[in-house]
Lab assay of single mutants.
Amino acid sequence: ENVVSAPMPGKVLRVLVRVGDRVRVGQGLLVLEAMKMENEIPSPRDGVVKRILVKEGEIVDTGQPKIELG
């Protein structure tokens, strides 16, 4: 899985990584606000952040790609 998608609709509060960052499985990639709760979205695997496809403040839909890992 190279693309991390939104598990639920919500607002991107914070992006916790930058392009080029090495990430580990379970590491937080971003914080999504859904139903007035903050949810940290974890990396599904070890890898390197290739692209960030969302911006802080953006509203995302379920299944929308957010971060691409290499």
Rank of each mutant, 00 (worst) to 15 (best):
E1K: 12
E1A: 13
E1S: 14
E1H: 13
E1M: 13
E1Y: 12
N2F: 15
N2T: 15
N2I: 15
N2S: 13
V3T: 11
V3A: 07
V3Y: 14
V3Q: 08
V4K: 04
V4E: 03
V4D: 03
V4M: 05
V4Y: 02
S5Y: 15
S5Q: 09
S5G: 08
A6R: 03
A6S: 13
A6F: 08
A6D: 04
P7Y: 09
P7G: 14
P7L: 12
P7S: 13
M8K: 07
M8S: 09
M8I: 09
P9K: 11
P9Y: 10
G10Y: 00
G10R: 00
G10T: 04
K11I: 11
K11Y: 07
K11R: 11
K11L: 10
K11H: 04
V12E: 01
V12F: 00
V12N: 03
V12H: 02
V12P: 01
L13F: 00
L13Y: 00
L13W: 00
L13S: 06
R14Q: 09
R14A: 09
R14P: 06
R14D: 07
R14E: 10
R14L: 07
R14V: 10
V15P: 03
V15H: 02
V15T: 03
V15G: 02
V15C: 09
V15E: 06
V15A: 00
V15I: 15
L16P: 02
L16K: 05
L16G: 02
L16T: 04
L16S: 04
L16W: 00
L16D: 03
V17F: 00
V17Q: 01
R18K: 14
R18N: 13
R18L: 08
R18W: 04
R18M: 10
R18V: 12
R18H: 12
V19S: 05
V19M: 06
V19Y: 03
V19P: 08
V19C: 09
G20V: 03
G20A: 05
G20R: 03
G20K: 03
D21H: 05
D21N: 05
D21S: 07
R22D: 10
R22W: 14
R22A: 12
R22Y: 14
R22M: 13
R22Q: 12
R22V: 13
V23W: 02
V23L: 03
V23P: 00
R24L: 11
R24Q: 12
R24A: 11
R24G: 09
R24T: 13
V25M: 13
V25G: 08
V25D: 05
V25Y: 11
V25A: 14
G26R: 04
G26P: 01
G26M: 05
G26K: 05
G26L: 05
G26A: 05
Q27K: 05
Q27F: 04
Q27P: 02
Q27T: 09
G28F: 08
G28I: 15
G28P: 15
G28D: 04
G28E: 05
G28V: 15
G28R: 07
L29K: 00
L30R: 00
L30A: 05
L30W: 02
L30Y: 05
L30P: 01
L30K: 00
L30N: 00
L30E: 01
V31K: 00
V31L: 08
V31F: 03
V31Y: 04
V31Q: 01
V31A: 02
L32A: 00
L32D: 01
L32R: 00
L32P: 00
E33F: 13
E33L: 15
E33V: 10
A34P: 00
A34G: 10
A34R: 07
M35P: 04
M35L: 12
M35Y: 12
K36V: 07
K36F: 14
K36M: 14
K36Y: 13
M37L: 11
M37R: 13
M37Y: 08
M37Q: 13
M37N: 10
E38S: 08
E38L: 12
E38T: 10
E38F: 09
E38P: 09
E38W: 08
E38C: 10
E38H: 10
N39I: 15
E40D: 06
E40P: 07
E40L: 15
I41V: 09
I41T: 03
I41Q: 02
I41D: 02
I41E: 03
I41P: 03
P42I: 13
P42N: 10
P42M: 12
P42L: 14
P42V: 14
P42H: 10
P42T: 14
S43V: 02
S43T: 05
S43R: 01
S43W: 02
S43C: 10
S43I: 02
P44A: 04
P44H: 09
R45E: 05
R45P: 01
R45D: 05
R45H: 10
R45Q: 10
R45L: 12
D46P: 07
D46T: 09
D46Q: 07
G47S: 05
G47H: 02
G47A: 10
G47W: 00
G47V: 03
G47D: 02
G47R: 02
G47E: 01
V48H: 09
V48Q: 08
V48A: 04
V49L: 00
V49C: 04
V49K: 02
V49G: 00
V49F: 00
K50E: 09
K50Q: 10
K50P: 00
R51I: 08
R51S: 10
R51W: 02
R51P: 03
R51H: 08
I52F: 00
I52H: 00
I52L: 06
I52K: 01
I52V: 10
L53F: 14
L53Y: 12
L53H: 08
L53A: 03
L53N: 05
L53R: 04
V54T: 05
V54G: 02
V54P: 02
V54C: 07
V54Y: 00
V54I: 10
K55G: 08
K55M: 11
K55I: 11
E56L: 10
E56K: 09
E56V: 14
E56H: 06
G57H: 05
G57S: 04
G57F: 06
G57Q: 05
G57K: 03
E58F: 05
E58L: 04
E58S: 09
E58K: 03
I59M: 14
I59K: 09
I59W: 15
I59F: 14
I59C: 13
I59T: 11
I59A: 09
I59D: 10
I59G: 05
I59R: 10
V60C: 09
V60Q: 02
V60P: 02
V60I: 08
D61L: 13
D61T: 15
D61Q: 14
D61K: 15
D61F: 14
D61E: 14
D61A: 14
T62P: 11
T62Y: 12
T62S: 13
T62Q: 13
G63F: 09
G63N: 10
G63K: 07
G63A: 08
G63Q: 07
G63Y: 08
G63S: 07
G63M: 08
Q64E: 07
Q64P: 02
Q64R: 07
Q64F: 07
Q64V: 08
Q64D: 10
P65R: 08
P65A: 12
P65V: 11
K66H: 15
K66Y: 15
K66C: 15
K66G: 15
I67H: 01
I67K: 01
I67G: 02
I67E: 03
I67L: 09
I67D: 01
I67Y: 03
E68W: 11
E68P: 03
E68A: 09
E68R: 07
E68H: 10
L69F: 10
L69K: 01
L69W: 06
G70N: 12
G70S: 13
G70R: 13
